[in-house]
Amino acid sequence: MKTYFQTENGKFIIEDFFKLYDTYLSKHYKNKFQLILTSPPFPLNAKKQYGNYQGDEYKNWFIQLAPLFSNLLKEDGSIVIELGNAWEPGRPVQSTLHLECLLNFVHHEEAGLRLIQEFIVYNPSRLPSPAQWVTVNRIRTIDSYTHIWWIAKSDFPKADNRKVLRPYSKSMKSLLAKKKYNAGKRPSEHNIGKKSFLKNNGGSIAHNFFELEPLDEKREVRLPHNVLSFSNTNSNDFFLKTCRERGITPHPARMHKGIVEFFIEFLTDEDDLILDPFAGSNTTGYCAEKMNRRWISCEINEKYAEQAKIRFEDPLLNNRILQEL
């Protein structure tokens, strides 16, 4: 095991996750992590630089993670996994591989897991994919979203949606100001009380659909505050700007920082412990440090570990790298 660098709250380790589990995590961190948050290599057809598996090889690799994650997770902890779509090699047919992976992961007999909720991240800025069938043959539409799956060991993992509220709509703000609305029975047979919507809760409950850019320019996008703060700001992102200045090609499959912060805020408290077993450039560790959570990140590629250090030069962070190898 090679601890590449440490901060006040966490450590970044260069190692294959399965080896790290066998030699270190299973011995020292059983039932310790409140959240395992990661974007593993996607089951893509063309092998990418960041090392994704393919087909049945990917499925077998992915499924064997289930009992390991379960063993490391606290009883009320959560697993959050971003998983993209896949397509059949050479065919304009969407693969069911990602769904097979999910179902087998959740139902692994040694893991005792259950699927809590599905989230959709819509990003219209994604490049046209699959390119052959979208831009050449022009017989399919663009895959513009990814799935995020929330999984847990318990039916009632620790969570609080009051910590990730969306801003109220203009109409709701107006209603709260006027302190009256059209109460009574609706066609749906719901009976709306005279005071049902007069309490100001600081915002509305978040949806499981993240609209990173507006579907309708005339309509206000109402993402949770921590997601909205990162929406449409990639050009000003410290990490990307620094990579450009230093001639570094950034990791091609980075998780959106706002989404990472949403789940950290939603599912953990300060000082809770978070694991990212496939950290890449370490978005999870960066956000955890910024939000005063403890963290461990694992990445096998030393090139991406170098990029991870850049994140801790960010002036938004109070904590810096304390020790590095």
Rank of each mutant, 00 (worst) to 15 (best):
Y24I: 02
E265M: 02
Q54W: 03
A159N: 10
P214N: 11
E110C: 08
L103K: 11
S196V: 10
D276R: 08
N226I: 05
K241P: 02
E109L: 04
R246G: 05
D160C: 10
E88I: 09
V106Q: 06
F263Y: 10
S70W: 05
Y168M: 01
Q117E: 13
S129P: 01
K199G: 01
K2Y: 06
K59H: 12
V227N: 11
G184P: 11
D237I: 03
T268Q: 13
W149K: 09
R246E: 11
R166F: 00
T268L: 06
D237F: 07
D22Q: 15
I148V: 14
K170R: 06
L215S: 14
R140C: 14
L198H: 05
A206Q: 03
T135E: 15
S196L: 08
D276Y: 11
K59E: 13
E88H: 10
S95W: 11
T96D: 15
H207V: 00
E109H: 12
L317Y: 10
F12L: 13
V106G: 04
S281Q: 02
K11R: 12
S39L: 02
L267F: 04
I151K: 11
G258S: 08
I192W: 05
P277L: 07
K32V: 00
K179H: 02
E261S: 14
L35G: 03
E245V: 00
L325K: 15
S188I: 07
E110G: 02
R186V: 01
L73N: 03
R140H: 06
N9V: 00
S78F: 01
W87G: 05
A206Y: 02
R91V: 00
K59W: 01
Q6R: 14
L325R: 14
L103C: 08
F209R: 12
D160R: 08
K179M: 01
F239D: 07
F18G: 07
L215H: 13
E302K: 13
F209K: 13
L127P: 01
A206W: 00
D22C: 07
K163D: 09
Y122H: 15
V136M: 11
R311D: 12
N236F: 01
A253F: 05
T96L: 15
F262S: 04
L44D: 03
R244W: 03
Y286D: 08
L322S: 05
Q307M: 14
N292G: 06
F209G: 12
L97E: 10
N71A: 13
N137Y: 14
